[in-house]
């Protein structure tokens, strides 16, 4: 009983936490998509109805939440490519943890580049 599992592809380490993040981001994006299809459908009601609702996307609170949404989509999408690489690429399991950190790095850099631009629009006049 002295054996301490060092973690496997799926347990304990990067493999598990990437899965947790993938799942949480997937659920978050899913519920946003439900709302987003409905708010876009308002273009079929009237220009006024659509414009009133879409204005709420430009408020500070929702504007900040959009950074999280963009980050979640970026992470989920890029990590999805990582999952596909693990499944289909013969070296996928060997590089899965490197690929995870690449996914995190690209996500962080992209969100960092997007944030000042987006916040200037949300908080600017």
């Amino acid at each position: 009983m002295a054996i301490k599992p060092a973690g496997t592809l799926y347990r304990g380490k990067v493999g598990m936490w990437s899965w947790v993040l993938h799942r949480i981001s997937g659920v978050g994006i899913f519920f946003f998509l439900l709302v987003h299809v409905l708010d876009t459908a308002l273009v079929r009601v009237s220009p006024e109805a659509y414009n009133i609702v879409i204005e709420s996307y430009k408020t500070p609170v929702v504007g900040l939440a959009e950074l999280g949404l963009v980050g979640a989509i970026l992470f989920h999408g890029l990590n999805g490519l990582r999952v596909i690489a693990i499944d289909f690429w013969s070296k996928g399991t060997k590089y899965q943890s490197v690929m995870f950190w690449v996914v995190i790095a690209v996500t962080v850099i992209a969100v960092a580049g997007f944030t000042p631009m987006h916040l200037a629009r949300v908080f600017g006049h």
Partner: peptide, 19 residues
């Protein structure tokens, strides 16, 4: 995301006429 949130005026430009 790039077309709607990055290019031009991003979120600020989105309204009925944009769609």
């Amino acid at each position: 995301l790039v077309v709607n949130l990055v290019l031009g005026d991003g979120i600020k430009a989105i309204d009925f006429a944009f769609v």
